Computed example of a mutant assay.
Amino acid sequence: MSSDSSTSDSSTIDTREEDPNLDQSDVEDIGTANTMRERSGETRIKTWLVLDGSRLLITAMLGMLIFGVFVFGGMFYYQYYLTDAQTADTVETVFSTMISAIITGVTLTLTISQIIISQENGPLGDQRTRMSNTMDFREYTREIIGSPTPADPSAFLRALILETKAYAEDLRKSVEDSDSDELRGEVDEFTNSLIGNANAAGDKLEGRKFGSYTVLSAALDFNYGWKIFQVERIANDHQEVISRETKDILEELKTALSMYGPAREHIKTLYFEWELISLSQNILYLSVPALVTAGFVTTYLGGSSLSGVVLGVPVLIWVTAAAFAITSLPFLLLISYIARIATIAKRTLAIGPFILRDSQR
């Protein structure tokens, strides 16, 4: 589905009937852009920061931002900070609070990991049911694509996408001799859009390994829900002029698109679990240096002041800025991961032909 959309688009037909003066181009925009970013209208920078960029790199960039703000701000308020560091326990208070935050964050991370792992545990009967459902789905997919279902997630999704492309080509051929210019025009625009989208998503999926966002990104680029709606609309609007062959192809195309929906949702669920486990591991790794830094500053720097200047900046500012940036890394890593997971979840709330964003209303 256009993982990114709002309101069932069947409403566009009702609106057209109620308001004959409505611009036809507003309700019959069959073709769509080939990527989720283009359909949502987001900038490349925002998309890279929230979705495409490495989470570790984004975390490092956020840490550098905090470090820079502290150094820049410290230059203006150094005299007040120096006095406070000598006479009060501000530094000690800040970093002792960070110690508590780090420990709490690690505990929360372990809780998340336990919840994820607990979902994989269960009695034999439940495991047998899961296995049976998986094999049933794979068997149904094998019947659709006409070959053994690939085991690799990216190849699995790619096979379904290429199958919809094949049906789209058959659909276009089936209406070539139709007397309805409107039907031929709509099918031509629809199939061109589907084939272009399938080629773009299929190329992006080819050779990708599960665990990287590129697999899910390509899967989200293929807006199967919008295509299901268009199949249903074309079959309904032209039911009096389309042939039996065309009707059968439309049904087969709809079935292939409908199979892509749960397949993508399953891969998305596995990816979420993979990401949350990776988040837990990385937070555990970062929490050790963050805890050591906070403890060191609290024990040896709290209540004292460091003398000297490096590159025109007092050493006290360098040390406190670097220490705060390091102790913030576990939290910043959490932000970077949750930003991606929450964005994906928001754009894929509905399964099937429901449009939850304004991009294709």
Rank of each mutant, 00 (worst) to 15 (best):
A85F: 05
T90N: 03
M75Y: 06
M98A: 07
D89H: 13
V91L: 10
G74V: 00
G73S: 06
F76W: 07
D84N: 14
V94Q: 07
F67L: 15
T87V: 13
F70M: 14
V94G: 03
M98C: 03
F76M: 11
D84P: 00
F72S: 12
I66M: 11
I66P: 01
V69R: 05
Y81T: 11
T93K: 04
Q79Y: 07
I99C: 09
T87W: 07
E92T: 11
T97D: 10
Y81A: 11
A85C: 13
A101T: 08
E92H: 08
G68H: 03
Y81M: 14
L82F: 06
F76C: 07
E92P: 01
T97A: 10
I102R: 04
I99D: 11
F95I: 02
Y81S: 09
G73I: 01
F72G: 04
E92R: 05
I66G: 08
F76I: 13
Y77C: 04
S96I: 03
T83G: 13
Y77E: 06
T93M: 09
D89C: 05
Y78H: 13
M98W: 00
G74I: 00
F67P: 06
F95K: 00
D84Y: 03
F72V: 11
G73H: 01
A88W: 09
G73K: 00
F67S: 09
M75F: 07
T83P: 00
G74K: 00
D89S: 13
E92Q: 10
Q79T: 15
F76T: 12
T83W: 05
G74N: 02
T93F: 01
L82P: 00
A85D: 09
T83S: 11
I99M: 15
S100N: 09
I102H: 02
T87E: 14
V71M: 09
L82R: 09
V71Q: 05
Q86L: 14
A88Q: 15
F70G: 03
Q86C: 07
A101K: 03
A85R: 08
G73V: 05
L82M: 12
M98L: 08
V71C: 07
G68I: 07
T97R: 07
A101I: 08
T93N: 07
A101Y: 04
F95R: 01
D84H: 05
E92M: 06
T87N: 11
F95T: 01
Q79L: 12
I102M: 05
Q79R: 14
Y80H: 14
F76V: 08
S96V: 06
T83V: 12
Y80E: 15
T83E: 13
Y78G: 06
F76D: 08
S96T: 11
F70C: 15
T97F: 04
Y77D: 10
I99W: 03
V94C: 02
S96K: 07
A85E: 06
Q86A: 13
Y77P: 00
F67M: 12
Y81Q: 12
G74S: 01
G68E: 04
F72A: 13
F70Y: 12
A88S: 15
G73Q: 04
I99S: 10
A88H: 14
V71D: 04
S96M: 04
Y77G: 08
F76Y: 09
V71K: 01
Q79M: 14
I66D: 00
T87F: 04
T90S: 10
S100C: 04
V91W: 00
Q79W: 10
I66Y: 08
M98T: 05
Q79D: 15
G73Y: 02
